[in-house]
Design a protein around this nucleic acid. Structure first.
Lengths: 212, 212
DNA sequence: TAGATTGTTAATCGATTAACAATC
DNA sequence: TAGATTGTTAATCGATTAACAATC
């Protein structure tokens, strides 16, 4: 894909939701949908749906709407879900294990290939078929294996040196669950999941009764 | 607080990050900070920081900047972190257990008081001091106990009837980890954490090398 | 063909940034 | 006092919504 005008983050963040609705429609046997009908179901404007999609191509047909299967496939392509990704998990604690045990990721092509921890009791064990390595072997592992994404599921206090190793060994993406902003090379993609921040936002809205 | 002009979601979402930086500053013994210096550290504009804060009050002083402790306290108040919240976790699987075991939430006043599951092997057990109840007893529990927030950590297929019970029994907030959009009364606050969506966004950016 | 619905341009709305008077 | 920095207004930028010609 040639780099046309840069696509805004707001649009990208909406794509997975479109994809989810389209998959649901497909499952319930709906073959075509108009932006108007989809807008009613999703609670967004039809204009926005059409604008968003037209950032990537013309997937609809005047007078008909969108073919659900075709459109869902297109979005899958746009999101890069037409290949598999190798993920490692740094931190084999509760969260790391939860991620590793969650079956839906593998279904969509996100494959956990290794976990790393500092705790000797965990090193050498296997979680959902994934081996837990000594964190000391992280660099070696990265040099010998193809890794796309590292999920950071460790306390923020330990993340700095780990992130440096990941960066130096050319990691492409970091899925960051540790409660700190990462400093990495500009070509490393970081996706933050700050659970504490999310909970704070929730409690703000609880007290200022925004509702929905 | 009187309902002035409605404060935008974008602003609210940035508050926890300000709060995090301010706490870090406090920990490292910094007592005052200007919007200019904070903007350099956080990588946002000073204008934005001042605009954001002035939605809630005048916390700074010309020629001086902001008192770190005072400002962090103000933001804590704004976010509603000056009281405790009772949370229950629906779904005592890996994710539910991970949430329950994470110590940082309790530190900030988010207290897990009960878990619920459908699995007989889990019911009656205790995780990090929190008892796992039969999901069949959810309604009764809600009627007999003060619950502020329910964390939904269960498969999407099971969420519908559970959400209805929560709604009917007057839950105030739902922290939704299940991969589906909830239909609830307009006064129930929903905060979504869609991990799969987050991973899709990451893989999009991986393929379209946005970097940072 | 007539009706429906897209793709796309134009209008509106809101959020971010810049500028600067007020003031500590 | 002079320098620094806020709070706030004005300018800019970008995102959302509305409108409609094109066309299936």
């Amino acid at each position: 894909m040639v780099n046309d005008k840069r696509i805004s983050d707001a649009v990208i963040k909406r794509l997975p939701r479109y994809y989810r609705y389209l998959c649901d429609l497909l499952d319930s046997g709906v073959t075509r949908i108009s932006s108007g009908e989809l807008s009613r179901r999703m609670g967004v404007t039809a204009s926005q749906i059409r604008q968003d999609l037209n950032n990537f191509g013309c997937f609809g047909q005047q007078g008909y709407g969108y073919n659900v299967e075709l459109l869902s496939n297109e979005i899958r392509k746009i999101l890069g879900m037409v290949r598999t990704y190798n993920l490692i998990i740094i931190g084999a604690g509760n969260l790391g294990q939860a991620l590793c045990n969650y079956q839906n990721f593998a279904k969509r092509g996100y494959i956990f290939t290794a976990m790393f921890d500092i705790n000797p009791d965990l090193i050498g064990t296997t979680i959902n078929g994934v081996k837990v390595y000594d964190i000391a072997d992280l660099r070696k592992y990265l040099q010998e294996n193809e890794v796309d994404i590292a999920a950071l599921a460790l306390p923020r206090s330990n993340s700095r040196p780990i992130v440096q190793i990941l960066d130096e060994e050319g990691i492409k993406g970091i899925w960051n669950f540790s409660h700190v902003d990462l400093k990495v090379s500009p070509d490393v993609v970081v996706e933050n999941v700050h659970l504490t921040d999310s909970l704070m936002t929730l409690s703000y809205r609880l007290n200022n009764q925004v509702g929905e």
